[in-house]
């Protein structure tokens, strides 16, 4: 890639810029700022669309009472049961149970507090799904 071809397509970096390696007129490598590149932006956007879809779907299922609000916050924080269980320090099967509304409603407040702290939200938010 030549220095004058370094792409400047704003996207994933937001206001920031990344660094690209490119060669200058003399064929020597230089570090060249780049605002982003369209193919990478497309791939990133696609990944986010998939996640948004999953979050929306989980949201609907929570609304219908099939899943507990915990499932929504898990999806919104891009986690699955495995990683959430690691964060909270419980076996997977217990976290999986907490995704059932019936079990979740009767959870120990101390445990709920731990979940809320992990997601950086208040306990009331965790109970309600805002």
């Amino acid at each position: 890639m030549e220095k004058k071809e370094v792409p400047q397509d704003r996207g994933i970096y937001g206001k920031c810029t990344g660094i690209c390696y490119a060669v200058d007129e003399n064929g020597k490598y230089v570090l060249s700022p780049s605002a982003g590149w369209e193919p990478a932006n497309i791939a990133n956007q696609q990944a986010w669309e998939l996640m948004e879809e999953q979050i929306a779907e989980t949201r609907e299922r929570v609304k219908r009472g099939e899943l507990s609000p915990l499932a929504y916050y898990m999806a919104r924080n891009l986690m699955d049961v495995k990683i959430l269980a690691q964060y909270i320090g419980l076996p997977k099967w217990r976290v999986k149970r907490h995704l059932k509304p019936r079990v979740f409603r009767r959870l120990n407040p101390r445990l709920l507090e731990r979940y809320a702290k992990l997601f950086n939200i208040k306990m009331e938010q965790l109970m309600e799904m805002h």
Binding site: M1, Y21, A22, P39, A40, I42, A43
Partner: peptide, 25 residues
């Protein structure tokens, strides 16, 4: 999706372009 993932690994995560090949050059 699989293709998008490969592209992200190659271009998005701070590789300096071309999956680190340009940095190696």
């Amino acid at each position: 999706l699989l293709l998008g993932n490969a592209i992200r690994m190659q271009e998005e995560v701070g590789t300096g372009g071309g999956g680190f090949r340009l940095m190696y050059a």
